[in-house]
Computed example of a mutant assay.
Amino acid sequence: MSQPPTNASSRAALPLLDSEVLRTFVTIAESGSFTRAAQQLFRTPSALSMQIKRLEETLGQTLFVREARHVRLTAEGEVLLGYGRRLLKLNAEAVTQFLAPTLEGRVGFGITDDVVGRILPNVLSRFARSHPAVQVDVVVGHSIDLFAKLDDGELDLALVMGSESRQDLHREVIHSETLVWVGHEDGIAVEQRPLPVTLAQHGCEWRRITLNALDDASVDYRIAYSCDYCSGQEAAILADLAITAFPKSLIRPPLKRLTNDALPPLGGYQVALVNHPGRSNASAALAEHVLEADPTPQFSTA
């Protein structure tokens, strides 16, 4: 009497997904067309169609809904797209680890306080795995100070807030968000007049946006507390000493978004990666990791 296959033998029998076929699948999914994907991959549409047919047979699932001039993913195709992107990225990292020239040297990286916790741990972790011989020196400060350090050569690249653009710097926006009013969920600071606010020191983009909004709306306010770090401003809100303007994505209990009619609307801000053209290979590699990172906090509850 034959024995049922063990878990180990079942796992060993699973087919392996070919990276070339996965690249074809991802390209078709992102372009929405076999024809456009074929042009990008320098193949014929029929060759791509045969690859997808074999992939669908291997997985036992229909991955695309074919329509007149384009294709769209099925529910199973959407699931595979996430896996496919991650597998291709992991494959590229593995190949780079062994075939790419070893990078060495130092990179000066500037970053503002509000972005540190959101982006830095993931970026540094991935960069250290890919380029362990590169030393990264991190400087936390206001955008205006980081620009000065770029000019002085102390930094190679920086994540800054604001829309400032200069011809001598390369600038890529990685995040945009609107500021909202924030206070303690049980607080009464928002009802006080003059309105008590907590802000960073001069040079902060959020401070500029907040004060401009209050002045334009002729709101009577006072700066009750100031601190250059978000954690310090949160402390003033938790003590119900003041309210402030934060990105919606930074709000977590017991803080809450305030919708008081007396509070003026606030503008948005951008986080951009800036650096000098002709940067070193090491700083260019770090810039790629920064651009791939997600700056949105995972604890957002607002």
Rank of each mutant, 00 (worst) to 15 (best):
A47R: 03
I251E: 13
A213Y: 11
Q135T: 14
N212F: 02
T27N: 04
A13N: 08
T35P: 02
I111M: 07
R118F: 00
K248L: 10
S283M: 09
D156T: 11
G117E: 11
G110D: 02
H184C: 01
P297N: 03
S2K: 08
L41C: 06
G84W: 03
R207C: 12
R222M: 09
S9G: 02
L22T: 06
L266G: 03
R106P: 11
G162S: 12
K256A: 00
Q51P: 09
S10E: 03
E177H: 08
G141L: 09
I119K: 00
L157T: 05
E57H: 10
Y229L: 07
L266D: 01
R66M: 01
L81M: 12
A47P: 14
A133K: 15
A287M: 06
D215Y: 05
T198H: 12
T35S: 15
G105F: 12
D220P: 10
L214A: 09
E56P: 02
V138W: 03
Y83W: 06
R72C: 09
T198M: 04
Q270I: 08
G82C: 10
Y229T: 04
D145M: 05
T178P: 00
S176M: 12
Q201T: 13
R72F: 08
S226W: 06
L81D: 05
D240N: 04
G108R: 11
H276D: 14
L88R: 07
L80F: 09
A302S: 03
L155M: 09
Q135L: 02
H289N: 12
R166W: 13
Q135M: 11
G60C: 04
L87E: 07
L266H: 09
A189R: 02
F299D: 14
P15V: 05
G278E: 08
Q61H: 13
H70Y: 08
L41N: 07
T301Y: 10
V138C: 03
I111V: 13
P121E: 09
G232N: 06
A12S: 02
R208V: 04
L286D: 09
Q97K: 15
R279S: 14
E205I: 15
E67R: 02
A284Q: 15
T62K: 14
L99I: 11
L17W: 03
A282C: 11
D240T: 07
R222G: 05
A282K: 15
V138L: 06
L291K: 13
T259I: 15
A287G: 04
A242M: 04
G77E: 05
H131Q: 12
S46N: 03
P264H: 07
R69M: 11
V139T: 05
P196A: 05
A245G: 13
F109G: 13
D220E: 09
A189K: 01
G153H: 00
K248F: 06
V180L: 09
F147A: 02
V140Y: 00
F98S: 13
A133S: 14
S46W: 06
E78P: 03
I174S: 14
A189Y: 00
